[in-house]
């Protein structure tokens, strides 16, 4: 607190110097001006003016503070920017993860449904491929079990020999006629 006071005294002296040459020669002790003023108007002689005591630094500190503030402003802006960017980035990232998670869930669900559909279709194929079902469908279509088969066997000399006796399959047993109404 002592330095600003001295600074204030010097500035006061310079201000006074504009109106008196004495001011350039020595220091002005501020408390002494009081009695001088109280002694009444003086037409000549040094014109002293009461200068309020140097009590604060407002005239000098704000300037330095402004300078410091000017120096710190980009840093603060950078910090705020980084903070905002980070928050926004995190938000975006979180949103993206959530969206991906939702998509993954939907894909999994769709996949499961497709797998179920495939399983159902495979189930139908397997059921239709059994010997019993094929026999039933074949019989319904009028097919009958085959008779004895004959084989044409090629000989080394190129001729062929018929082995076995091909016999026609027995005729299908006709389905009993459906009863007509009133029978």
């Amino acid at each position: 607190m002592t330095q600003p006071a001295r600074t204030s005294s010097a500035r006061t002296a310079r201000t006074s110097g504009r109106s008196t040459s004495r001011a350039t020669t020595g220091q002005v002790h501020v408390p002494r001006t009081g009695p001088t003023r109280r002694s009444g108007p003086v037409a000549s002689g040094p014109h002293l003016r009461l200068v309020p005591p140097a009590r604060t630094t407002p005239t000098r500190v704000p300037a330095r503070a402004r300078a410091t503030g000017r120096r710190r402003a980009p840093f603060v802006v950078l910090l705020v920017g980084l903070l905002v960017t980070t928050v926004l980035g995190l938000l975006l990232l979180n949103t993206a993860v959530a969206v991906d998670s939702l998509n993954a869930t939907q894909q999994r669900q769709a996949n499961a449904e497709q797998a179920e559909e495939v399983a159902r279709l495979e189930q139908r194929v397997i059921a239709a491929d059994t010997a019993a079902e094929l026999a039933r469908v074949a019989t319904a279509a009028g097919l009958v079990p085959p008779g004895a088969a004959a084989h044409l066997v090629l000989q080394p000399d190129g001729s062929s020999v018929l082995l076995g006796t091909a016999t026609p399959a027995p005729p299908a047993v006709p389905e009993p006629a459906a009863p007509t109404p009133g029978d």
Binding site: A149, H151, V153, V161, L163, G164
Partner: peptide
Amino acid sequence: LTAGGVVPSG
């Protein structure tokens, strides 16, 4: 024999 494609006895 038939389903197995076995050739009849020669």
